[in-house]
Structures are given as C-alpha cells and as structure tokens.
Design a protein around this nucleic acid. Structure first.
Length: 566
RNA sequence: GCACCAUUAGCUCAGUUGGAUAGAGCAACGGAUUUCUAAUCCGUAGGUCAGAGGUUCGAGUCCCCUAUGGUGUACCA
C-alpha cells in the first residue's frame, strides 16, 4: 500500500535526512511470515550511512511511530522493521483505488499511445497449423492485449510464410498428381499430404528438387499458372487458419506475409549498398559485422542471385519503421531464430542508428515430443484443431458426469478445452522448453485453465445472487484473515500487469491468476457471502465485485474464455 | 571448436530483480460436502536450489570455472 509506505518514508527521512537517497517505496518488502506484520522495511542498507548496526537502526526508527494510528503494531526483528497496518484504514484506502475502475483508468495511461508492432503466429502457408504454432500465436496475442490495455497503440502483424521454394514443390507435384479443383475441394490437409508425398518421392528421385526450383522461378517471374496456384494455396490455408484464430480469439491488424516485401527487396539492398555496408564474399552479397559482435555475416543474396529469409526480414523491418514509426517492434518466435534476428537487427542498426533498441526478439523455448520426431516434411505434426477437439471432448465427458445445468454444453466445453490448452502454455516462462504431453495438456485440475475458469464461475454465481449492491461499505467487516489475504493479492494487480508488459511475459499474469484463485477459494471455503447478515453481505459482495473485475481482466489479457456455468 | 539458453521436491513449475524459516500444482497418504457449484478446500510427507570457487552484513538470485541437456553456427525458413 503506497500511502502507508510514503507516510513511513516521510517520517523516517524527516528524522534521518541522510538516507533520503536510498529509501523509496521499492525498498519495502512483504514479510515472509505474515505474523510479523504487513510490510517490512529492511534496514541493512542504512547501516553504512548512519554508522549503526541494522538492529539498532530498526529500533530507533520504530520509536518514530509511537502513537501513529495507521499502524497497530511495529516490531523490529533481525534488522527488519515490521509494520502491522490498521486494517480498516488500509482496506478503506485500497478499496478506494479499486472501486469505480480507478485502477484500470490509471493503467490505461501508461502506454501514452506509443506504437508497438507485434509480429506473431506467422504460420507457413500450405502447412496445417500444428501445436508448434500455438506458442507464438497465443504469447503474441497476449502481449498484444497487455500493451493495448496499458494504452499502447498495439499493431498485430501476421508475417505469413508465403514465399519460398516449398511452393515450387507443391506446384510441380499438383500439376503432376492433382488438379486445381481437387485442392479447392480438399483443402489444407490435402496440400499437407502432397508436400509429404513430394518429399518421399524426392528421396528416390533428386531431379524433383530441380523441377520444384523451376516452378518457384516461374512464380517469381509472375507466370500466370504459378500465380494461380500460389493464390489458391493462400486462400485454402487462410480458410483453415481463420477457423483456429476465431476459436482462440486471435486477431491481426495486418496480414502481410513475406511475399508482400518482395517488391522492396531490390530497394532494400540498394539502400544498404549505398551506405557501404555490403560486400561480396564467396560469391554472395553479405553484410559483415564487427569482430566483437561474434556473428557470421548476414547473407542478402545467394551466389545465384536469389534473396533469403534475412533479406525479407530486413525489408520488413525497414518497411515497419517508415510505415508505423514505432516505439518498439516485437518479434515472437522460437529461440532457435535468435542469431537470425540478432543479425537482422544489427544490420538495421548499422543502416539507421536511431533504430537501436527499437527491435526486440521475444523468444520462447522449443517444443518437443517424447514419442515422435516432429517434421512437417514427414507429416507427423500434432494438428492444433485436434488438440482443441480432444480437450473439448474431455470437457463434454466431465460435464455429463457432473450433470451440470448448462444451456449450451458444446460451446462451454469448447471454451473449457481452449482454456486448458492456452493456460497450459502461458503459465510457464516463455524461455522454458516444453515437451508436449497429452495428459498434461488435457489436465483440468490443479494449476490449470479450467481451474481458473471454475473459480471465476464461483465468483459470478455469488454476484448473480446478490440483488442489491450498497455503495456505503463497512470496511471493518472485511478485516478477517481470508478477506484480508484476498485484498493483499488483489493489491498486486497493478505491479503484475506492468511487470508482465515490461518483460513481455504473460506467465506473470497466469501465475497471478493462480494466486487470485487460490486466495479466493480459501475465502470461499470460510466466508459465506450470500445470505449472511445484511451489512456483512454488502461488504463481502463489494470485495467479490472488485475481485471479479481484476480477475476477468487477467483472463481477458491471456485469452482464456470466460464461462458463467460449468 | 565458438556462441546463446536451461538446470530449484519423484514429475511440472513459482520465487516480488540481493533479504528473514526456498513456495505451489501433480503423483502418495489422511481428512472436509444438511452450505454461494468438491473442476474446491485443509493436513502429512517430500530440498546439498546441478557441482566447485568468488563478490558482501546477506546469494536460488550477481561474477568466474566445470558438468549435463537443448539450440544455433554462410547461401533453408
């Protein structure tokens, strides 16, 4: 509670001005043991300045607060000065911050409408969306939501993998084995199969690779048939992706794939050449880096003249700088691409030093599979809609077992499944490698999405039963242990949101939701709201209403669907 | 070879940016439902924070080395 901290700081620095520099609101900690008090001031770092042992300092400080009505008790233990709040006063102040959306309005001003471009999801056209596409998609969407909530101008970009020799492979294969109509009818799974078949045939006959290159060359040269195929691939793929995006509530402001930047490639290379950043090395056009950068050269053109992934990303980065004038550009991808982005960002920085620090690679760990090797070339991926379907089916089973009264069971089950899948992914730090595990993904108890949703159903059910909300609240009635713990957890909302934004780390919010859920369930077990004495019901309902707004916002930021019955 | 990332309870993970006795969930065992939904709650058990050294009042957290695992390392994306 900031007010109390400021009061303490003013009092202490009033008596000991020499420690003004090192004493701020961030100096305070939460006591390890709540018996000690509500906040603690560690006095170790004042020892050098005041030339006293910490225990003595804490003792001297404590004398300053004799008779202060805001603190019930002040004790010094091992150099920590522990303050116990006057709970009623604390709760009154805290509730003031949270009522009428005050805290939300405050958070909304942080971003100051600065533009953040977020590049996420970026699936590869003609490939079925698999569980391996999930991380970038939902981490990116969550980072988008968080920035937007904090008042940034979030711009979501889906940088589709819609260019490259793999389309030559498909074109050759389809001309040989299929037809335009068949692709249109059978959709993305068919394209996926064709791609797999191409690779198994190409193992026997290496000439196929050359045929594919010829077809890709046709595409680059605007050949009518090639373009017709390519547009079909995109249409068929987007039809499939859009269904999944809709299910996961994922949205983009721009869908501009790699192909969009092809028109700028020559210009990009020319710009870099004009700044003398390029050179020919082993027949290729490259940008070399300082030795202390410890990076291999960035290739712009292969020795055969073709451009590369990096060239397209540099083009895209330059385009984004001029088009959006961003405060920051965030790329959400696998950690395996770290070197690639370091190279791209460095090239941009060498071209335009003002861009330094604007570009950020938000990387996440690798997804692995225990019992199979994942490879789109061999076709053994785990399709994302299959994961969501299995999660939904399991939820349907549980709903049936429980005989719950739910109006639309199929829709609710789908939302539970989605909640499970999303939370499973967002609840661990981005950087951790994840081994895909059906049992864990489909687990609905403990620290899971359905648990989060279930607790929220309890919250909603309480509020549903309250007929009338008083605005005049008796704060002395919610000073008990369970209400107080809940309020202390709610209080962390502001810091948690800011932290997750600064670190681009949705898991901070996911773990916070678990804290909220845990403290609420404890409250629920011990404190009845509906039907208790009138003033008590009012006070508790008020507390639950504050909880509801904070809890719902956290779920919204992560993209976990809200359900009112389950 | 070089570089980056990870390593905390049997398993999966937190750990407020250097503070007090390292916390959850799962799995195991024991308990709670005439109650606002038991997808819940309470309790028991489980630890050489990978290992060694350093920095200081104080290290899971910062620095150095080592080990293990993952990833990348010039014409794939």
């Amino acid at each position: 509670m900031k007010e109390f901290k400021i009061q303490i700081i003013e009092k202490v620095t009033g008596a000991y001005p020499s420690i003004k520099e090192v004493l701020g609101v961030e100096t305070f900690e939460n006591p390890k043991n709540s018996d000690f008090g509500d906040i603690a001031l560690p006095c170790f770092k004042f020892a050098g300045i005041l030339k006293m042992p910490p225990v003595k300092i804490a003792e001297n400080f404590s004398l300053l607060f004799t008779g202060d009505k805001n603190f019930e008790k002040i004790v010094n233990i091992n150099g920590y000065l522990n303050f116990k709040f006057n709970r009623e006063e604390y709760i009154r102040l805290l509730c003031g911050e949270f009522r009428d959306g005050n805290i939300f309005n405050k958070l909304k001003t942080i971003g100051n409408n600065k533009t953040i471009v977020i590049d996420y999801s970026h699936p590869n056209i003609a490939k079925n969306m698999g569980i391996h596409n999930l991380r970038s998609t939902i981490i990116g969407q969550s980072i988008y939501n968080i920035h937007k909530f904090l008042g940034y101008n979030s711009i979501g970009v889906n940088h589709l993998g819609d260019w490259g020799t793999q389309f030559g492979k498909l074109m050759w294969a389809l001309e040989e084995w299929s037809s335009f109509e068949e692709v249109e009818e059978k959709g993305i799974l068919f394209l996926n199969d064709i791609y797999v078949r191409f690779h198994s045939e190409a193992e026997k006959d290496p000439c196929l690779e050359e045929s594919a290159r010829i077809w890709f060359k046709k595409l680059e040269n605007n050949d009518h048939t090639a373009i017709k195929w390519w547009k079909l691939f995109i249409k068929v793929s987007m039809d499939a992706y859009d269904k999944i995006y809709e299910r996961l509530n994922v949205k983009f402001d721009y869908i501009t794939g790699e192909s969009f930047y092809i028109r700028y490639l020559d210009e990009t290379i020319k710009k870099l050449e004009e700044k003398n950043l390029t050179e020919i090395s082993e027949g290729a056009l490259v940008v070399k880096f300082d030795e202390n950068e410890n990076m291999p050269p960035c290739l712009l053109r292969k020795s055969d003249g073709a451009t590369l992934y990096a060239t397209r990303d540099i083009s895209a980065a330059m385009y984004r700088l001029t088009k959006f004038k961003p405060y920051k550009v965030i790329y959400v991808t696998d950690i395996a691409q770290e070197l690639h982005f370091n190279q791209v960002f460095k090239v941009i920085e060498m071209y335009d030093p003002c861009s330094k620090g604007k570009f950020k690679h938000v990387k996440f760990g690798r997804l692995s599979f225990s019992d199979m090797q994942m490879s789109t070339r061999k076709g053994n991926i785990v399709p994302l809609n299959e994961v969501l379907d299995k999660a939904r089916d399991k939820a349907i089973e549980i709903i049936k077992e429980r005989n719950a009264v739910i109006s639309d069971k199929a829709e609710t089950a789908d939302k539970i499944g989605i909640g499970a899948v999303i939370f499973n992914d967002l609840s661990v730090s981005r950087i951790k490698n994840i081994e895909f595990d059906w049992d864990k993904t489909l687990s609905f108890e403990g620290e899971t999405g359905p648990h989060i949703q279930y607790s929220f159903v309890r919250i909603l059910n309480i509020l549903e039963k309250i007929e009338h909300f008083e605005t005049n609240i008796d704060y002395s009635l919610i000073t008990d242990e369970y209400s107080y713990d809940l309020l202390r957890t709610i209080e962390q909302f502001e810091n948690k949101i800011i932290q997750s934004c600064e670190e681009n780390e949705p898991s901070v919010i996911a773990n916070y939701l678990l804290d909220l859920s845990k403290t609420f369930n404890r409250f629920y077990q011990n404190n009845r709201v509906v039907g208790v004495e009138n003033d008590l019901q009012n006070s508790r309902a008020f507390l639950i209403k504050i909880l509801q707004s904070v809890y719902a916002k956290c779920m919204d930021l992560l993209g976990i669907p809200i359900i009112d019955k389950m």
